[in-house]
Design a protein around this nucleic acid. Structure first.
Length: 484
RNA sequence: GGCGGUAUCGUCUAGGGGACUAGGACGGGGCCCUCUCAAGGCCCAAACACGGGUUCGAAUCCCGUUACCGCUACCA
């Protein structure tokens, strides 16, 4: 096999980068990382009406976030119009394509008639039978035409890297002699793709399953052009929970949405990689280098996969735990600052404390957004009490008040403000009062954090510090006094 | 309608003729740990779409049926 692998991801810039596209890009990238070669990016912007600059940017941003760096310059398909026309001309010169002067209305009529007869429509190639003189005369008189590919007899087969051999009888490919050049002189998708893949010296076309029926057309085009064929690999679709193509109706579909939900790019990559590929063993949580090391085309599966948000969140939690506080800090800081909980400078000024907080929160969070939410009691001066928690934990207001009072006195008298002495203090208090330690911890937790779920109570006390802890308890007592 | 693709627990999948009383993971249920919540550990429920072959033997190979998906444009 000559030359290095050259693969490309070729999205059309008609929206954001959705998870299916990201998965396709990822597999192309993984193949190159694993087997060597180049991963190229081509923007298929020949449909001017639907293509936007903003969505091109969104695609770049999505790929960059995932860490899927591409090689060489980005190719914009729209810039290659001249080559596309030249390739059409080559086909025309070689007699592999011909001008068709049938109007849209005529074709529609034929199509309708065929349907009425219950038959599949196929172009009757009447224009292929026009004499050279007649064609010249019509062209000279400025009669509009499209260029059609002259479909050969026989059948077209390729050995798909994921599906194995796939064969199409040529008579069943599309509507017969398909159009390759519009009457306005612009190329149709299949021609543009082939022309570009040849120019980019692509050796493996790895794309979504929805392209399998385009493949025989493209193979025929390569052959008519006298060019060597690349290999093909068609990845199964990514569907929503109802088994239908993933769409907005299913919730977040853009990779950017997951970034904003606090999903880690490495978790997204890990999750996406497992959608349609399996390493073979029982390993699931992997770093990107581990995925690359294990990646193999043999592990690609043929069947469509359903995107399961629950599993993504679980996986994100796994990756969160894998990262150090230092690695997580920039991500969490962004959220903390955006939520107006603290400034970057404030966090930097007590770095050790901040990192300790991150370590405490990361194990009980599934996203970085969760961490920001859970960090609130430690960053704000005042806290709100969760209504349900108050109703349950401080049900007996007078009793709770009295208990908090005793707790505060005990804590205020603690020999030092560290986890172990604080634990000894509170357990001694519980014993003295003849109650289980939990009976003291929960009301205290609510006073300290406003909620019933938090890290261990001694860690909370330490994170809050002596002054703030005692102040919180005092505030809770005032709250209870007012309410009773 | 035609053509193509796919078919293992609810979901992601392992499995490529005997190692399958079908394994792992998410999710669900239970227990343990425990100051709560997570994390972690242990356990439970849960699948080879159906029908024919081939074979001593089929989740694995072949054919058919069914279901689902895709394509069937002067969209990409």
């Amino acid at each position: 096999m000559p030359g290095p692998n050259r693969l490309r991801f070729a999205p059309s810039p008609t929206g954001y980068l959705h998870v299916g596209g990201a998965r396709t890009a990822l597999f192309n990238w993984l193949f190159v990382q694993r087997y060597g070669g180049q991963f190229l990016l081509r923007i298929e912007d020949t449909d001017k009406a639907r293509s936007t600059e903003a969505s091109t940017r969104a695609i770049f941003e999505g790929l960059e976030w995932l860490g899927l760096e591409w090689d060489e310059e980005v190719v914009h398909q729209g810039a290659n119009l001249e080559r596309h026309r030249t390739d059409v001309q080559r086909l025309l010169d070689a007699g592999k394509a011909y001008r068709c002067f049938c109007t849209q209305a005529e074709i529609d009529e034929q199509r309708k008639a065929a349907e009425a007869r219950g038959e599949a429509f196929r172009y009757d190639r009447r224009c292929a039978r026009l004499s050279a003189d007649e064609v010249a005369r019509r062209v000279a008189s400025d009669m509009p035409f499209v260029v059609r590919f002259a479909m050969p007899e026989g059948e077209t087969t390729w050995d798909d890297l994921v599906h194995g051999p796939i064969t199409f009888p040529n008579k069943d490919i599309g509507e017969g002699d398909f159009i390759i050049l519009r009457s306005d002189g612009t190329p149709i998708y299949n021609l543009a793709v082939v022309s570009d893949d040849i120019a980019m010296r692509i050796t493996l076309v790895m794309r979504g399953d929805d392209h399998v029926s385009n493949t025989p057309k493209q193979i025929l085009l390569y052959e008519a052009l006298g060019e060597a064929l690349p290999q093909f690999a068609h990845l199964p679709n990514v569907n929503g929970p109802d088994g239908k193509k993933l769409s907005k109706r299913h919730g977040a579909t853009a990779v950017g949405d997951y970034q904003h939900m606090g999903i880690l790019p490495q978790a997204m990559v890990n999750f996406l990689a497992l959608l349609g590929w399996a390493p073979g063993g029982d390993i699931e949580v992997m770093t990107v280098p581990e995925i690359i090391e294990r990646f193999s085309v043999d592990g690609l599966s043929k069947n469509a996969a359903v995107f399961d948000l629950k599993k993504l969140e679980w996986m994100n939690g796994q990756h969160l735990s894998l990262l150090s506080a230092a690695e997580l800090a920039p991500l969490v800081t962004r959220g903390v600052v955006a939520a107006g909980l603290a400034t970057e400078a404030e966090l930097a000024s007590r770095r050790d404390w901040y990192f300790a907080l991150i370590d405490l929160l990361k194990v009980r969070a599934r996203t970085t957004d969760d961490m920001v939410r859970q960090a609130i009691p430690y960053l704000r001066d005042d806290i709100d009490y969760d209504a349900d928690a108050v109703a349950k934990t401080w049900k007996d207001r007078a009793g709770a008040q009295e208990l908090l009072h005793a707790t505060r006195d005990a804590l205020a008298a603690a020999p030092s403000w560290e986890a172990q002495p604080l634990e000894d203090t509170l357990r001694t208090l519980a014993e003295a009062r003849g109650v289980g330690a939990g009976k003291i911890f929960q009301p205290l937790r609510l006073a300290l954090t406003g909620v019933t779920a938090s890290p261990g109570i001694f860690d909370v006390l330490v994170m809050l510090g002596r002054d703030r802890s005692l102040a919180r308890i005092a505030a809770a007592m005032r709250f209870l006094a007012e309410k009773s």
